[in-house]
């Protein structure tokens, strides 16, 4: 099973139209990956669909980097019992 990090990068790559291999944990979605405000909404929807979770909009949109997204999504998956291969 792919890791949370791999799955986050896969969604980010699809929404932001970048190569997953070029996405690093320290990357800011807006500054480094070029996410516009509308795309941040698409990212949230994409993560929710990928992991089968429901994220709080404000919490989710406060996440700025890929690494922070991995941490946040991991926490939400645990809270909501979503399968992340643990």
């Amino acid at each position: 099973m792919a890791t949370v990090d791999e799955r986050v990068r896969k969604v980010a790559a699809r929404v932001l139209n970048v190569d997953p291999a070029d996405i690093r944990p320290e990357h800011y979605f807006a500054v480094d990956l070029g996410a516009e405000s509308v795309q941040s909404i698409e990212l949230v929807a994409g993560f929710e669909e990928e992991f089968g979770i429901d994220m709080d909009e404000e919490e989710a949109l406060a996440v700025e980097t890929v690494g922070a997204a991995v941490e946040y999504i991991t926490r939400v998956c645990r809270e909501q019992g979503a399968d992340i291969g643990e």
Binding site: S37, V38, I41, E42, A45, E57, E58, L61
Partner: peptide
């Protein structure tokens, strides 16, 4: 409504 689909947006 973003890209023609309903989202929760910024809440």
């Amino acid at each position: 409504l973003i890209e023609g689909v309903v989202t929760k947006g910024f809440g």
